[in-house]
Computed example of a mutant assay.
Amino acid sequence: MCQSMSFSVVPRYLAPVLLAVLLGSSAAGGPGPGPGPAAAGPTFTNPLLPSGPDPWVVQKDGFYYVMVTTGNSLVIRKTAKMSELSQAPATRVWSPQPQHENTRNVWAPELHFLDGKWYIYYTAGPDGQNCCGGQRSWVLENASPDPTQGPWVEKARLASPGADFWSIDMTVFELRGKRYALWSGQEAGSDQQNIYISAMSNPWTLTGPRTLLSKPEFEWELNGTPKVNEGPEILQHKGKTFLIFSASHCSTDTYALGQLTLTGRDPLVASNWKKSPEPVFVNYAASFAYGPGHNSFFKSKDGSQDWIIYHANNNPREGCGNPRSPRMQQFTWNRDGSPNFGKPVATGKPLARPAGE
Results as ranks from 00 to 15, higher is better:
Ala199Gly: 14
Ala270Phe: 07
Ile234Ser: 01
Gly291Gln: 04
Gly291Arg: 03
Glu230Cys: 06
Gly291Thr: 10
Glu278Asn: 13
Tyr196Cys: 03
Asn313Ser: 13
Leu235Arg: 12
Lys299Cys: 03
Ala286Lys: 14
Asp302Val: 00
Leu268Gly: 02
Lys275Cys: 04
Thr263Cys: 03
Ser304Val: 09
Ser304Arg: 11
Pro316Ala: 13
Gly185Asp: 06
Asn223Arg: 14
Ala312Ile: 09
Lys301Cys: 08
Lys299Val: 06
Asn229Glu: 10
Arg179His: 10
Pro267Ala: 07
His311Asp: 13
Arg210Ser: 15
Gly239Glu: 06
Gly208Ile: 06
Gly321Thr: 06
Ser271Val: 13
Lys178Ile: 02
Arg179Gly: 01
Pro216His: 02
Gly185Tyr: 11
Leu257Phe: 04
Glu230Ser: 05
Gly258Trp: 06
Phe288Pro: 00
Ala199Met: 06
Asn315Gly: 11
Ile197Pro: 06
Pro232Phe: 12
Gln186Cys: 06
Asn229Phe: 05
Ala289Lys: 02
Ile195Trp: 07
Asn283Val: 02
Cys320Leu: 01
Pro209Val: 08
Ile197Tyr: 04
Ser304Cys: 05
Glu221Cys: 09
Pro292Ile: 07
Gly319Ser: 11
Pro267Trp: 08
Lys178Asn: 10
Asn272Val: 07
His249Leu: 10
Gln193Gly: 05
Asp253Pro: 10
Gly224Ser: 03
Gly321Phe: 08
Ser248Arg: 03
Ser184Arg: 09
Ala188Val: 12
Asp266Val: 08
His237Leu: 00
Asn223Thr: 15
Asn313His: 12
Ser251Ala: 15
His249Cys: 12
Tyr310His: 09
Ala181Ile: 02
Glu278Phe: 11
Trp273Arg: 04
Glu219Trp: 14
Leu235Pro: 06
Glu221Tyr: 04
Lys240Trp: 00
Asn283Ser: 14
Gly258Ala: 12
Asp191Trp: 13
Asn295Met: 07
Lys301Ala: 13
Asp302Glu: 01
Leu182Cys: 08
Arg176Lys: 15
Glu221His: 07
Ala247Ser: 13
Gln236Thr: 10
Leu212Trp: 10
Lys215Phe: 13
Ser246Gly: 14
Gln193Ser: 10
Ser248Met: 07
Cys250Trp: 02
Gly291His: 08
Asn223His: 14
Thr211Cys: 03
Leu182Asn: 02
Trp273Val: 02
Asp306Gly: 07
Arg176Asn: 15
Gln236Lys: 14
Ser248Gln: 04
Ser198Arg: 10
Gln192Met: 14
Lys275Leu: 06
Asn223Gly: 12
Ser296Asn: 14
Asp266Ser: 05
Leu206Ala: 11
Ile197Arg: 09
Ser304Asp: 05
Ser201Cys: 05
Thr261Gln: 13
Ile244Met: 08
Phe281Arg: 11
Asn314Lys: 12
Asn313Gln: 09
Gly208Asn: 07
Ile309Pro: 08
Lys215Asp: 10
Trp183Ser: 01
Leu243Ile: 02
Ile234Gly: 02
Leu243Trp: 00
Pro316Phe: 12
Gly319Tyr: 11
Thr252Val: 11
Pro267Tyr: 09
Cys250Ser: 13
Leu222Tyr: 00
Thr261Asn: 01
Ser300Ile: 01
Leu268Lys: 07
Phe242Leu: 03
